[in-house]
Amino acid sequence: MCTTCGCGDTELVPVELHEKILAGNDRTARHNREHFLEAGVLALNLMGSPGAGKTAVLEATARAAAARGWRLGAVSADLATDNDAVRLQKAGIPSRAITTGQACHLDAELVHRSLHDLPWQQTDVFFIENVGNLVCPAIYDLGEAASVVVLSVTEGEDKPLKYPTMFLEADLVLISKCDLIPHLDFDMARLEDALARVMPTPRALKVSARTGEGMDAWVAWIAAKRLELGMVGRVAGLGAALQGPGRGAGR
């Protein structure tokens, strides 16, 4: 009611909110993050263009991790098929597909629901393979401990400048398909310069899923990330001597 004269007219009230539009997603992401941390599971959000080699990197990661006794898990998002999850499953990574239909990205709720169907608590490293897209997935926090962008050498050195938001929040860039460099006019210095203009502390590793180049460094990065977060299970002990008979204090 109008407070000036009590006439019963309605009033126009400006309400200041100053609230992030994705606040709801961020709340669910925090919830996911707490679950992952409590279970001692390192969750990684893997993003990149369609065809950048996200699934191939994970297949190669499975090979590198098997020798170390790591337990991996994954959910793999795809607009229409479950091809990637099937590939990961074949590579020995227990996986589920998240078919997003028209949605061009994963959100925290989709990830949360998919976790109900997977024994993710029994993993050391859990990959969330996002929809192939260098734009939309960038702004959705999923509750991951770190985000990793896979950028292949065939995509062009200026991609970071064209898609700055994707790279801005990335903890690591995996420069994939490096075995192709001899066949391309690819300039690594140009790519590194582009990354330095969109990431304040750029971190990139050259990898090839085909030859295995760089996989040791990638696996060491994962192990260091687990240590940094106080996850002191099997993954932390890279050397066999460090692997005790049990699961370690962090489990």
């Binding site: 309605t10 126009l12 400006p14 909110l17 100053h18 801005l168």
Partner: peptide, 22 residues
């Protein structure tokens, strides 16, 4: 030192709504 992104540069924020109340 590395740069820091200034506040608001990457924000998507609902600042205000004008509501008609009885």
């Amino acid at each position: 030192e590395p740069a820091r992104l200034d506040e608001g540069s990457d924000a998507l924020t609902l600042d205000a709504v004008d509501l008609e109340v009885p």
